[in-house]
Design a protein around this nucleic acid. Sequence first.
DNA 1: CACGAGACCTGTTCGC
DNA 2: TGCGAACAGGTCTCGT
Length: 276
Amino acid sequence: MPELPEVETIARALREGGRDGPALVGRRIQGVSLLWRRTLAEPSPAEFETRICGQQITDIGRRGKFLVFTLDADSLLIHLRMSGDLLVEAQDALIAAHHRLLLELEGDLRLAFNDARKFGRVWLVADPQRILGGLGPEPLDPAFSAEALYQRLKNTRRQLKPLLLDQTFIAGLGNIYTDEALHMAGLHPRQAADSLSPGQAARLWESIRAVLLDGIQRQGASIDWVYRGGDFQNYFRVYQRTGEPCPVCGTPVARIVIGQRGTHFCPRCQPDPKGE
DNA sequence: CACGAGACCTGTTCGC
DNA sequence: TGCGAACAGGTCTCGT
């Protein structure tokens, strides 16, 4: 479900309050309820409970698509994968379908991890870098320049679409924002990374940032029954718009499959450099 | 090294 | 109406 803009929106809401609840920073974790074993990646359920109880939430942030809860002694990392969501509830609220992990907090609050497809994962670790260390650069980090992207693109011949989805290449992009960024940049999803000119790389860099900032500003995209959030889905250029006119040239949006992921693009604005 | 397929899961939508 | 297939915002592992 969530990509960088959705995770950022959730992190901000939990850190600063607003949306569906008050700020969680400063609150102590009082209790734990693990409803689906595999949701907890590490440590063991027993150690998780004894170790997290009593720790205070010092900060809440994001790295790539991971939510990062900084606690007194440890870091709680949460990856929502396809269908995960976080909800702040009263401690006596009914336990909704698909709740997988509950954290009881000071102030009669409960942080619920809801995840229909059970792909989401939670880690409690002393050193978050052990889990996050392999991630690529943050696309919105000022240190990530167009030149830096160009240099990374030159290192590989991989197709742009799967490359941008690779979290070790760049962190935070998923299927929606990758398709949107490639369309904005006028690049075919199968184009080889090392074939981009410096100008094309700069345009891709700008497009990635523009699409992500737009998504954050609209508080993410809400599709189907998952994630009740922003309204970026109303502004998709190509994603899930197969057959509808390209907003730039009117050509029907095409859908192909690359790396088992549905891929949407405009055949005219994003011509295949190799023909066909 | 780069790519495709299969797993992991549940729910919704679409075609017949 | 019913039923199976296809599809879904992610990532890991294995085989070629």
